[in-house]
Amino acid sequence: MGVYDILKEWGVKNYRVIDRQAIKEITLGASILATGGGGDPDIGLLWAYKVLDEGKEIVMVDPMDVPDDILAASPACLGSALCLTEKPPSSKVLTIAIDALQKYMGKNLKATIPLECGGVNSILAYAAAGEYGVPVVDVDGMNRAFPELQMTSWVTHGVHASPTVSVDDRENITVIDTLDNDHVAEMIARKVAMAYGGISWVATYPMSGKELKETSILNSQSIAWEVGKAVFAAREKHADLIEEMLKALRQVRNVEGYKIFKGKIIDIGREFGSESTKGFTLGKIIMEGINEYKGSIAELNFQNEWLIVKVDGVVKCLPPDLIAVLDSETGEPIRTDIMKYGYRGTIVVLPAHERMRTPKGIETFGPRYFGYDLDYVPVEELNQR
């Protein structure tokens, strides 16, 4: 059974065929929304290109068209973004993980769902969908990227990460099943990734179509797609890349984003994916203002992704709200794993999706979880004062 047989069985006539241009646009948009993380987007992009070049089709469906009783799951990578760049995967890792999950569940996947918005983890779901002849669903678990497995709208709305299957490129397989204890699942998955050499490939968050619709960030891939389209269009007409991106977000999400700083990196403190950092890339950067921000200083802390930003000592954004540092000339995100002294960029902050802003969400991935002695304040309030 192929993807169109599945759509016929579901009675779905409205779907979107994802071609090379669409993948390129979605990858850029997802990378921007990935808050400095998400890994090297070229890995996800080339993976999806390979699937398309083999004549396989990638089709995206609206979540509301997914039957309640089907099984869906997320193929993804977990670990240090730097290790991912240094250890590019074989083409078999996701197949091994998905096959092992299907065997453990005793049921075949009928759809894939991106784990997060990220240059790798969004697009892996598209590539896997093409490989298995199933649709990819227009959802994810964050509409941004976060460093830990349990930091999703799925967990905060009652769906669990177990079972998770973790593999490496030597075809080692680990099945992690901690029932409803998602924090323990994260800790085990992290240790497994470290044992594998810093990066692992997972099939995770198996859920029903009903659970998918009730707990996901709905239409998150369309949001990323519109962001990517806007930046590519702005490049072609030499328009203001940042303003065009923010305009696209107003149209597709009806939210206001804020450009809060423009500057260059003058200091970096960073630790890469070691045992002492539990496989995360941790640190802080200092940016010196340029142009209209000359004389101001921005500080950004990160754990794989940007977490908190201050301008002249004043907090401008806290998790789960989004921070993006974008190249002012290209709109490309400056990721935490590639930034260097002297890089110039514009800092943009955005509201998290409402399904990420619940009390359970703030407890699970708000500022206090990351060790900051700060209560969560929405980015709109921080930047309208």
Results as ranks from 00 to 15, higher is better:
residue 264 K to D: 12
residue 142 M to I: 03
residue 45 L to M: 12
residue 322 L to H: 07
residue 109 L to R: 05
residue 315 V to C: 06
residue 301 N to Y: 14
residue 105 M to T: 12
residue 263 G to Q: 12
residue 130 G to W: 02
residue 163 P to G: 07
residue 343 Y to K: 03
residue 271 E to G: 08
residue 60 M to R: 08
residue 199 I to E: 11
residue 40 D to M: 05
residue 219 N to S: 12
residue 339 M to T: 07
residue 219 N to R: 08
residue 188 I to G: 07
residue 364 T to Q: 04
residue 199 I to Q: 13
residue 177 D to G: 07
residue 324 A to Y: 05
residue 212 L to N: 10
residue 277 T to K: 11
residue 312 D to H: 12
residue 219 N to F: 08
residue 246 L to P: 13
residue 380 E to G: 09
residue 92 K to W: 14
residue 162 S to Q: 03
residue 22 A to T: 12
residue 73 A to M: 00
residue 125 A to I: 03
residue 60 M to K: 09
residue 303 Q to Y: 03
residue 300 L to P: 05
residue 355 R to Q: 14
residue 262 K to S: 12
residue 290 I to C: 10
residue 230 A to K: 09
residue 40 D to P: 11
residue 255 V to A: 07
residue 346 T to F: 11
residue 32 I to M: 01
residue 134 V to W: 02
residue 170 R to W: 13
residue 331 G to Q: 10
residue 293 Y to F: 07
residue 308 I to Q: 06
residue 337 D to T: 13
residue 54 E to V: 05
residue 188 I to F: 03
residue 83 C to R: 13
residue 1 M to E: 15
residue 337 D to G: 03
residue 130 G to K: 01
residue 11 G to A: 12
residue 189 A to H: 09
residue 18 I to K: 02
residue 159 V to G: 02
residue 161 A to F: 02
residue 158 G to M: 03
residue 8 K to V: 01
residue 180 D to W: 09
residue 36 G to D: 12
residue 204 T to I: 11
residue 368 R to K: 13
residue 347 I to V: 15
residue 311 V to E: 00
residue 147 P to W: 08
residue 187 M to N: 09
residue 157 H to T: 10
residue 139 V to E: 00
residue 96 I to F: 09
residue 335 R to W: 00
residue 146 F to S: 12
residue 118 G to A: 04
residue 291 N to F: 08
residue 139 V to Y: 00
residue 34 A to C: 09
residue 337 D to H: 15
residue 89 P to Q: 11
residue 153 S to W: 00
residue 383 N to L: 13
residue 341 Y to V: 09
residue 62 D to G: 11
residue 85 T to S: 10
residue 328 S to Q: 12
residue 296 S to Q: 15
residue 89 P to N: 10
residue 249 L to K: 00
residue 133 G to W: 06
residue 22 A to R: 14
residue 300 L to H: 08
residue 146 F to I: 08
residue 366 G to C: 02
residue 288 E to T: 13
residue 255 V to S: 06
residue 72 A to F: 00
residue 281 T to S: 14
residue 349 V to D: 08
residue 79 G to T: 04
residue 356 M to W: 01
residue 156 T to C: 11
residue 382 L to N: 05
residue 244 E to F: 05
residue 43 I to F: 10
residue 47 W to M: 15
residue 167 V to C: 11
residue 326 L to Q: 09
residue 241 L to N: 07
residue 339 M to G: 09
residue 278 K to F: 11
residue 350 L to S: 03
residue 362 I to C: 07
residue 233 A to Y: 04
residue 115 L to T: 01
